[in-house]
Computed example of a mutant assay.
Amino acid sequence: MSDTSPGPDEVRYVARLARVGISDEDAERFADQFADILGYFETLDEVPEVERESDLANVMREDEVRDGLDQEEALKNAPESEDGYFKGPNVS
C-alpha cells in the first residue's frame, strides 16, 4: 500500500467540508476503509494489459429505410389530438 493513504485527520477534514459530523471512532474506521479501497486500486495497477483484437466486427444489422406512418395513421388511435399533434393532459 502507498504511504499516501488518508488518515483520520484527512477524513475529519473532508467531513468538515461536507458539513457532516463524524466521531473520532468513525474517522479511524473510514481511514482504514479508504486505505483498503486504495489498496484495491493499486492491485488493479498490477494486472497486465491484454492485447485486444483489432479486427472487431459489427454484429448489428444494417439500418433499413422503410416507410413510416403518415400523420393520419399515427393519430388514428390517439385518445385526443389537436392540430395534427397528440394531445395529453396538462402537467403542472
Rank of each mutant, 00 (worst) to 15 (best):
V91T: 13
M1A: 13
R61L: 09
A35C: 02
R16T: 09
L38N: 08
A31T: 06
D24V: 13
A27Y: 02
P6K: 04
V11Y: 03
E46P: 00
R12D: 10
P79V: 05
T43I: 13
E10D: 14
D9N: 11
F41I: 07
V14M: 11
R61V: 07
L17A: 09
P48S: 15
A31W: 09
V20K: 10
V59T: 05
S92K: 13
S92Y: 14
N77G: 02
L69S: 03
M60L: 12
Y40A: 13
T43V: 09
V91I: 13
Y13L: 13
L75D: 07
V59P: 04
A57T: 09
E64H: 06
F86N: 02
V14I: 15
V47R: 05
V65T: 14
M60Y: 01
R12K: 15
R52E: 14
L44Y: 14
A57H: 06
D32F: 09
E49L: 11
R16S: 15
E72D: 14
G68W: 05
R16H: 13
M60K: 03
R52N: 06
A74N: 00
T43M: 09
D63G: 06
V59N: 06
A31I: 08
A27F: 08
G84P: 00
S23M: 06
L56K: 07
D45E: 14
S2I: 01
E42M: 02
Y13R: 14
A31K: 03
E49Y: 03
L44V: 12
V65K: 12
E10M: 10
I37N: 07
A18I: 06
E25R: 12
D9I: 04
D67I: 10
M1H: 06
V91Y: 04
L75R: 03
